[in-house]
């Protein structure tokens, strides 16, 4: 019954929309869906400072959110829907990929590593940040790198690349580290502050983000060498070349015009939380390489 309903619905939708849509939207399942629903769903993290986090009023903001909104502007133009509704859907490290894969969200704005395993579930837009795993510890803890973690307790956030990276390192170095799974960065911070764990393994930039929003930033430090490589990208549904092209165009335009760097500086240098991370040479290079011409 569901299938008949679905076919009928699709047929009706196609019939109604056939005349109204520009060529691109006709091909793209995502754009078609956005048009039919009259709204675009943005999945956002709630505490990935400064990529996607909540302001005091509970509205999502951040570097990735800004980039997503630029893409939304382009979608509005493409569909000729200036009043397209934007629906924000809160996601976390465990829900983000399934929600892209099952079509609940049309774009994911957070701090998601673009890797080849995840590419089976969703498509990634050009790399917009480059980072890797490190450890967040309390100053004076004596932990300077992973090697000092033997016999200690560490939090990892389930569903992240850091989880896999840390577990692999523990295996490789034959050290004994008790790991405690947490749901998200704030829960990890709570575990650190209450002394439940000695370290939290996450992407270096997110750890700096956590420090910048901590009550007493001078108490915390990020230590050790990188033990994973994490290039970030915004995620969109798979198998939708037209939608992907539209979004890639927006990002490439921003990179070419230099606006990307402005947005970067707005959030990182020094940024609203005073994270103070000037753009790295690598990222600058990545911006110029990915600024594809027409």
């Amino acid at each position: 019954m569901i299938r008949t309903f679905r076919t009928a619905f699709a047929a009706a939708a196609a019939f109604v929309l056939a005349g109204a849509l520009p060529a691109l939207a006709q091909e793209s399942p995502t754009l078609k869906k956005i048009k039919a629903a009259g709204e675009i769903s943005i999945g956002h993290r709630e505490a990935s400072v400064p990529f996607a986090f909540m302001d005091q009023a509970g509205k999502p903001q951040g570097y990735s959110v800004d980039l997503c909104l630029k893409i939304v502007d382009e979608v509005k133009k493409e569909l000729n829907l200036p009043n397209l509704k934007v629906k924000f859907v809160a996601i976390n490290a465990q829900t983000r990929i399934p929600l892209i894969a099952n079509g609940t969200i049309d774009i994911e704005c957070g701090s998601t590593t673009n890797n080849l395993t995840r590419a089976k579930q969703g498509d990634f837009l050009p790399v917009t940040f480059i980072t890797g795993s490190k450890l967040l510890v309390k100053k004076g803890s004596g932990i300077k790198s992973l090697a000092d973690m033997n016999g200690k307790r560490a939090s990892i956030s389930s569903g992240t690349t850091n989880e896999k990276a840390l577990l692999a390192e523990i295996e490789k170095r034959k050290i004994k580290v008790e790991t405690v799974m947490v749901k998200d960065h704030p829960q990890a911070m709570l575990n650190l502050e209450s002394g439940r764990v000695d370290a939290y393994a996450s992407d270096d930039v997110l750890l700096y983000g956590m420090i910048s929003t901590a009550k007493d930033p001078s108490q915390w430090e990020v230590v050790g060498e990188f033990f994973s490589y994490d290039p970030y990208g915004l995620m969109i549904p798979r198998n939708d070349s037209d939608y992907r092209l539209l979004a890639t165009r927006v990002i490439a335009d921003l990179m070419r015009s230099g606006e990307m760097e402005k947005i970067y500086n707005k959030w990182f240098n020094p940024g609203p939380t005073n994270i103070k991370m000037p753009i790295s040479a690598d990222l600058k290079k990545a911006f110029s390489i990915q600024a594809l011409p027409y």
Partner: peptide, 15 residues
């Protein structure tokens, strides 16, 4: 239901 039903139906129904 949260992860798999939308996949099964083929369209999202929201959290």
């Amino acid at each position: 239901f949260y992860f798999l039903v939308p996949k099964m139906l083929g369209w999202p129904i929201g959290g």
